[in-house]
Design a binder for these strands. Sequence first.
DNA 1: CGCGAGCTTGATGCCGATCAATGCATGTGG
DNA 2: CCACATGCATTGATCGGCATCAAGCTCGCG
Lengths: 245, 245
Amino acid sequence: MHATQPPVRLDPFKVACSSCNLRELCLPVGIAEDQMERLEAIVATRRAVPRGDPLFRSGDAFSSLYAIRTGFFKTCLSSEDGRDQVTGFQMAGELLGLDGIGTDRHTCDAIALEDSSVCIIPYHQLEDLSRELSDLQRHFHKIMSREIVRDHGVMLLLGSMRAEERLAAFMLNLTQRLRTRGFSASSLVLRMTREEIGSYLGLKLETVSRAFSKFQDDGILEVKQRQIRVLDADALQALVNGSSC
Amino acid sequence: MHATQPPVRLDPFKVACSSCNLRELCLPVGIAEDQMERLEAIVATRRAVPRGDPLFRSGDAFSSLYAIRTGFFKTCLSSEDGRDQVTGFQMAGELLGLDGIGTDRHTCDAIALEDSSVCIIPYHQLEDLSRELSDLQRHFHKIMSREIVRDHGVMLLLGSMRAEERLAAFMLNLTQRLRTRGFSASSLVLRMTREEIGSYLGLKLETVSRAFSKFQDDGILEVKQRQIRVLDADALQALVNGSSC
DNA sequence: CGCGAGCTTGATGCCGATCAATGCATGTGG
DNA sequence: CCACATGCATTGATCGGCATCAAGCTCGCG
């Protein structure tokens, strides 16, 4: 169906986990120095994913997890009838593919929203290794648990917030994650369309656009297409807290 | 805050995993006979949770997972402002508490919707054991992954379905899980209120009630308060598939 | 028996979907 | 370099589904 390009062996340009600037965000968190090379040994290949291409698709056989080195992805579910739901946006240091463990097949599509690069983590090797390294095991479990908690947060958003509250929560989440990665929290470029934001938030693209305009009128954001400047983060937070109701 | 009743040592009425009628649904799936007793050794205590009581609350320290032996639970998030979201309903054989792994604190409330009984699974012991038993490790990972996939399904529901479609999907999910447990798929008693269903589905209780009435008028369900009879499961399925649109 | 929690049903209004037109940026080919 | 196409975003007008408000109703229980 889609052309999967061959993974690239890293050497001689191997970027080891221990020298990766994402090691404080990614899988190796909390792994001791002397155990790190065990992990590096299984995370040996990398893959480039051009913008618009799938990293994997729903139904693909599951064999590996992917750690995002650079770039930006969305994951989305497309049910047989045309319904489509973006279930998340992922950035550097985050893990893709956890959905595949349960059934040995991926259950969603992961699409690159910009030219990206991922580390391939063969899942069975990760299982084997995490039986030996309890720190790795612990952190892997934490990652899965946090994904569950994150999803519950999205359910809260979809189930009980109104349009502007949803967009405010989304923007806060995005800026926080960017800040964690050392980017400015006040100036950012959206990598996704209004339609994709809308799908994630359970809104139509027009509603997303209107909410952005409203925020601009209220002096909360400065919006120029995908170029966003956050002028009043506190106001966003207040919206999420539902102070108005 | 809430009175946690002391766990009960099982013996002399110990119900071992190996003789539990939920072993094909619960944590021990795929565990070899000779490894089972290792698991039984750590799942040694049980706890009764009367209807309405919390098994745990958001903010409680996390130390154990809980396998439901009998009964029915809801998990819900309550954000500081009065927003409230039911994130799931759990029945016998399902695991509660996975949300706590990531932060060592529970992030939601788990409330018994009827008198229930759970097996206590001390988490660190489970981690230790799953480093030795790869079958246990594998299945535990599958359980977590499936929870993530389930949550994505709820996001699809909340983000893109209309009221009757949501309720249809909910009823189908419920009957399927009951069937798996050997109950009739056509006759069931709801353990939760309309308000709780509504919270889970992102609807108000009146809307849930109206949808039930509509299904009754259409001959799809027979509804007498919480007593439900499914007359036309195919029609429910057709609704979920969005045939009308 | 009467109370109260939960359920049903009706009337009304609002938020966000839908439909439609225009604007803006990027890219391509003449 | 301009003309035009294309994809995405904005904005307006209208519509509809669900929330909200408000009565009654049912059933279990003290």
